Amino acid sequence: MDDTGGKSDYHLIDMATKGEGAIHTAFTNQVAYCDANGAPITARICSAILAVVEGERSNALIERIRSWQGAPLADALPLRVAGGIHALHLSGDAPELSPIYRGVPVDDARIVEEVIFGHEAQLLSWLDGPPQTNEAGRSSNFAAAMLWLADQGLPPRFECLEIGSSAGINLMMDRYHYDLGGVMVGPEPGAMHFAPDWRGAPPPRRDIKIQSTRGCDVAPVDLTDPAQALRLKAYIWPEHTIRFERMEAAIVAASERKPDLVRANAADFVEAELAKPQESGTTRVLMHSIVWQYVPEDQQERVTAAMEAAGARATAERPLAWVALEANRTVHRHELRVRYWPGGEEGTLLARSHAHGADIDWLAG
């Protein structure tokens, strides 16, 4: 058995694949990914969409999917369409979807085809931008990474910068409480409480403080706007009911004090923030989760160059760290990787985790 858990058809998936066969690969990989992460209903929706796309009927939505010019897997094309369909279900505009979302065995392709052709105009707009999968549970990985960084000798006061912040839910992590394998972090009870299923040794026990958080997004979401909040809810996999509860808690927290979130692309934001003075005795951290695949290649290069240049100037009193939680499509898990300057430039794989933070496999010892 290979490291995909037996799913050899999905081994070494190239996220940047375009051209012939890329649409089919993107959808089948997304189905496998959903199944591997406890989302069978979302898998059913994605599989049904593919059946319609590969069928004989056509409309503007179907043709736009078939002729997708980008890399459909990196662009999360299946989840764009699935998000639009889920929104129709949540709003009650497509009651015929109800059996699928209740988990009832039905002819998924027939129902989804009916919805695609009956709600073409509403669904088309969902193709215009990537999913906003802002999930608070992923911040458990950020908290664990900060514990580890403090254990490496970096100052335990963190100035956090996040790219692809969406609604800024993870920017409010200083208000959350974490139980990470028995290691407690954050105020108790906190605006939200996270206790992921922890596997492996616990993370280091260190007293850490989140000094500040600031983030950017090319299309930031205002959680206090009900219409924008509904769009975020549509991207929540319906099987994960706790995520809806977390979204409501995040809305309350944002209503009390909005996160520090600006409209900017990743490269402009990182370059501007790294140019600002850094307080002595603080660790400046760039963090992101399920974002890198959406950042254009030229911006990825600028962010990397800016981080490495700032890292070369970093000192023990003013260190720099890069914490990334991104998908590994070959194992259908997310990987928590950390680089820091000075001393940890080469990077370390700290953990593998569930897509939405339900469990964490700690690998760092």
Rank of each mutant, 00 (worst) to 15 (best):
E162D: 03
I236Y: 02
I242K: 10
R205I: 09
G215I: 03
A234N: 08
D222K: 08
G190I: 10
A229W: 08
A249W: 00
P226H: 04
G186K: 09
F244S: 08
T213L: 07
I163T: 09
M247I: 04
E188V: 10
A201Y: 01
I210R: 04
S166W: 02
R206Y: 07
L180V: 10
I163D: 02
A250Y: 02
P238I: 12
I210N: 07
E159R: 10
I251N: 04
L223A: 09
D197P: 04
P203M: 11
Y178D: 13
A195R: 09
G181M: 11
M184D: 12
R214S: 07
G181D: 13
S165A: 15
F244D: 03
G164D: 05
P189I: 14
W237Y: 09
P238V: 13
G181P: 14
D174W: 14
E245K: 12
D174H: 15
P196I: 08
P202Y: 10
P202R: 08
P204C: 09
A201D: 14
P204K: 11
I242M: 10
Q211A: 15
L232P: 01
I236G: 03
C160R: 05
F194E: 02
V185D: 01
W237C: 07
S166I: 06
R205H: 09
E248T: 12
R243P: 00
G164S: 07
D207Y: 03
G215M: 04
A201C: 07
M172N: 05
S165H: 02
V252L: 13
D174V: 10
E248L: 12
S165F: 08
S212R: 09
A229N: 05
V218Q: 02
R199Y: 13
V252R: 15
E159C: 06
D225I: 00
D222A: 08
E239Q: 13
M184L: 14
G190K: 08
S166A: 15
L230G: 01
P187D: 14
A191W: 02
A234P: 06
G168M: 05
T213P: 02
A227H: 03
D222F: 03
P189E: 10
W198Q: 12
A219S: 09
R157V: 12
T224R: 11
G190H: 09
I163L: 06
A249H: 00
R175D: 08
R214K: 13
I163V: 14
R231Y: 06
M172V: 01
P187C: 12
G190S: 11
Q228M: 10
I236D: 00
R175Q: 14
P156L: 07
R157Y: 05
E162P: 00
L232W: 02
D174K: 15
A167Y: 06
S212Y: 04
I163H: 01
T224C: 11
P226G: 01
Q211V: 12
G200S: 07
G182L: 11
V221E: 00
E159I: 06
D222S: 10
R206K: 13
L161Q: 03
G200K: 09
L180D: 04
P156G: 15
D174G: 13
F158G: 08
A219R: 03
I242Q: 14
V183C: 08
I236M: 05
L232G: 02
I210A: 04
D174F: 11
E159L: 01
R206M: 13
L223I: 11
P203R: 05
